[in-house]
Design a binder for these strands. Structure first.
Lengths: 338, 338
DNA sequence: TTGAAAGCGCTAACAA
DNA sequence: TTGTTAGCGCTTTCAA
């Protein structure tokens, strides 16, 4: 006839200690794998802990030790590329003995709030994926915990940066096309935004490096399928180039779609290259030639930089630039014959 | 010449108390907005807190109060539908004064670990998005905190469930097609998996309800674009139906793509309906007719159910079924004339 | 190798 | 209305 469900009292360190016949301090040492206790004691303690189903209380542990071994990741959950990065951050964090906790931007939950949530959960360091926050704000955060930005450059003396080398990316893309015989290579850009500026610049540089400075042609685009599709018109109006390097995969896919609907066959008439090597680019029906970012390197470096600050005491900011690699699919080929 | 950066000592409640000339208990009350302190005191304390840049230490607060007002969400970050749900869970949690923390499944970080991470962060309740964990495991988790499953039914006496009514979904889809004059309506299913079984069943029931029991036709599919595209062959071999309801948007999009490549115009020759109302379905170039799940209702209900347990003391499990709505796009139309 | 005791920064009675 | 006093469950000296 129990009317109230008795909340199952949490098993504490003391309970384990009592069960094992030692002090709670000893249990703490054993459970954390810190040297000291004898093999026999370890044995007894471990058994007792398992038997009682002991789960350490992290809040208490954090409070006492001032360490959480927790890294916070702020991201945009609707960004598929962030999904890839997050996947790899798990690997990196795990390899170095850290746990991860996520917080996303969402309507009514901006980047600042995402960061606060992470800080409240006692994260010792933060990974910010493609954040949009202004420098001042990022600097303020960096004043209390180590911060690394992934994917975006920032002029700050307080935070670290890991990003892909856009110069190399466009060098590879343009180089691949030139190798196939292309000369009239256009760029459908990403519209406004800092990243778009950098990629535009990288495109121009790559073209010049290949002696194609006079062929440079940038068409306004954006970062979505729709924006890519919309670029097909202007692209044809100005006389179709034989190849296009798009801002990202989404716009490349939109562009391919629009071109083919208009009867322009890819890659027979026009070759198209994307950027991101997103999962959708790898679908057999899409099979886009695209620039793959080395997300494993990016995330490994990011975590390493945080650990350098956390455990190595580094305070000077570092910026690591990672080379991408071209993934050749079936949307590029030789230019059409004359 | 400072060689070691002095770690900026955290501002504590005591510091604020000293600055405001009151006790730390009073500061605690003021900062939590609990009645008691006079307006004048509140004023002084608030000022002092702001001036010192005080941030409460949640670990300590949690430890002392045994409450975190934190809800954990376990998800699969590579699932776009989860992104939608997460977005809406933020709204729901926020409305009820709870914070959210996320953990995803990733290679080397399975659902169990995701849940542990959340529990370690002292979440008071968990939202599991389309979890794959076996009943026993879910029950074990539910023994320590309230758990709600979103999207998947489970035979458990310990957890709550919120899901979309597949019966209504297919009733709407088939009804829409019948209203347009279709009779030969096929279903491209989702392959193995529990959800696929439920939707197959719902399709059959809807067909029978419309007196089309003899027209029932299920073609094997899957949950990806490729799987949808692959269904185009079998679909044509058996004599093209005039309409198809696919398992989800991805398979519907793959199917449309494959059909059009084969010269079968959608919707003139075949109408196609998807499921999920995913962002890509809303692209102008796709504009799929699709079943939209009411993610706002789903998430609001999920959070409410957790709060009922947390604050209302409910212990009996509940299952809430939410009606979907049909989003009519341009992939459905009247069947081709004879 | 182990234990006792003093906190970590906060909240929650209870007194004043 | 405010302050005092115990803890929350763990880690960490310091002694034994």
């Amino acid at each position: 006839m129990m009317s109230e469900a008795t909340p199952p009292r949490r098993v504490r360190l003391d309970d384990v200690a009592a069960a094992a016949g030692v002090s709670s301090a000893t249990v703490s040492l054993v459970l954390r794998g810190v040297g000291g206790p004898s093999a026999a004691t370890r044995q007894r303690v471990s058994e007792a802990a398992t038997r009682l189903g002991y789960r350490p209380d992290r809040a208490a542990s954090v409070l006492a030790s001032r360490r959480s071994r927790l890294i916070g990741v702020a991201l945009d959950i609707s960004n598929p590329f962030h999904a890839r990065l997050v996947r790899d951050v798990y690997g990196a964090a795990h390899r170095h003995g850290y746990h991860l906790i996520l917080s996303t931007v969402a309507p009514g939950h901006d980047e600042r709030q995402a960061v606060e949530t992470l800080l409240d959960s006692r994260c010792e360091a933060l990974v910010l994926l493609g954040p949009t926050a202004p420098v001042a704000q990022v600097d303020r955060i960096a004043a209390s915990v180590p911060v690394v930005l992934v994917g975006r450059h920032i002029d700050s003396t307080a935070v670290d940066v890991v990003r892909t080398d856009d110069g190399v990316a466009f060098e590879q893309a343009v180089g691949h096309l030139v190798g196939l015989g292309h000369r009239r290579i256009a760029h459908v850009d990403g519209g406004r935004g800092e990243v778009s500026v950098l990629r535009r610049r990288a495109y121009r540089a790559a073209m010049r490096r290949h002696g194609l400075g006079d062929q440079i042609r940038v068409v306004g685009g954006g970062d979505t399928e729709v924006a890519g599709a919309a670029a097909a018109g202007p692209l044809r109006d100005g006389g179709l180039p034989t190849a296009v390097v798009a801002f990202n995969d989404r716009s490349a896919i939109g562009l391919v779609d629009a071109l083919e609907r208009a009867g322009v066959v890819v890659p027979a008439a026009v070759s198209v290259i994307g950027y991101d090597d997103s999962p959708v680019a790898r679908l057999r029906s899409v099979d886009l030639t695209t620039v793959g970012q080395d997300t494993e390197r990016l995330t490994e470096e990011a975590v390493l930089m945080l650990i350098e600050r956390l455990e190595g005491g580094r305070t000077a900011p570092r910026e690591v630039v990672v080379a991408p690699h071209l993934v050749v699919g079936s949307t590029t080929g030789p230019p059409p014959g004359p």
